[in-house]
């Protein structure tokens, strides 16, 4: 049903991405590619893989392909106090997912049981309208298959009985070296991810568009300068000067500082 399901269970599986920790290593993106290449929506076709077959404006632009997860880098603010933020981006499994409602075939759908948004590759006609309807650039068209593809939230991992229980998390989450990615039920206010979101002020991307994304981003924590720690004196000068002026800050002060070895 293309219409959005009224989730009877309230389960909303999704990701929480910690921008305070993400170092921009692209591990999540490549591991996602690797898993999903052979996964539910695979293959994730690549073109011009070793160059030489595609010409764009008189130039070979290099390899490109279908990826479900991509890592951007932004700079926020100006000058030396600006901050660099790495920003992984994949499907947010929105509650009000227009990518679903615009779909003429019903190939794009949101699962009732867990809120995962998927594309049925057998019925998609490749009209690309859903990619226009997604503000987040999460939809990736596969020219070779003529159908739309996207992050599946690793549906073939998270319930996969052939995997050990601990491995039943999305590929991007299990591989993230910095543990900047979390997976869980955001519909359950007591789940670990929901707690994290409320503690850290997790937020929605482009809230103004009203898609109500399930995935949340944890903001970079405010930068702390050493001056921000009030316990720490701004310099050690006081200590240096409080010494006997005779001794000054010279070597003599250690004459009596003899410790036993």
């Amino acid at each position: 049903m293309t219409a959005l399901p009224a989730s009877p269970t309230g389960r909303r599986l999704g990701l929480v991405i910690d921008l305070d920790i993400c170092v921009g290593c692209h591990a999540c993106a490549v591991n996602c590619k690797e898993w999903n290449f052979g996964g539910h929506s695979g293959p994730l076709t690549d073109w011009n893989s070793f160059s030489g077959t595609e010409d764009r404006g008189g130039e070979d632009a290099g390899a490109w392909g279908v990826w479900f997860n991509r890592v951007h880098t932004f700079e926020v603010g100006d000058g030396p106090d600006s901050r660099t933020v790495h920003f992984p981006r994949s499907c947010l499994h929105c509650e009000d997912a227009a990518c679903v409602t615009v779909c003429p075939t019903g190939a794009s759908y949101k699962r009732e049981e867990d809120g995962i948004v998927l594309v049925n590759a057998d019925t998609c006609i490749g009209c690309k309208l859903c990619s226009w309807a997604c503000p987040y650039g999460a939809r990736e068209y596969d020219h070779a298959d003529g159908v739309m593809k996207k992050c599946t939230l690793c549906i073939d991992r998270i319930y996969n009985e052939n995997l050990d229980e601990v491995d039943r998390v999305p590929a991007c989450v299990s591989t993230c070296p910095a543990s900047a990615r979390h997976f869980g039920d955001l519909g359950d206010p007591d789940s670990a991810v929901s707690v994290l979101v409320s503690e850290r002020g997790g937020y929605d991307l482009m809230p103004e568009l009203g898609y109500r994304p399930t995935n949340k981003y944890l903001p970079p924590r405010p930068r702390r300068d050493c001056a921000d720690n009030e316990e720490v004196p701004v310099s050690l000068a006081d200590l240096a000067d409080r010494d006997d002026p005779e001794i000054g800050s010279g070597l003599l002060r250690w004459v009596d500082a003899v410790l036993s070895r």
Partner: peptide
């Protein structure tokens, strides 16, 4: 197949 979702989809 594009005929099926007239309830929601303008396309």
């Amino acid at each position: 197949r594009a005929l099926s979702q007239w309830r929601t989809s303008w396309l």
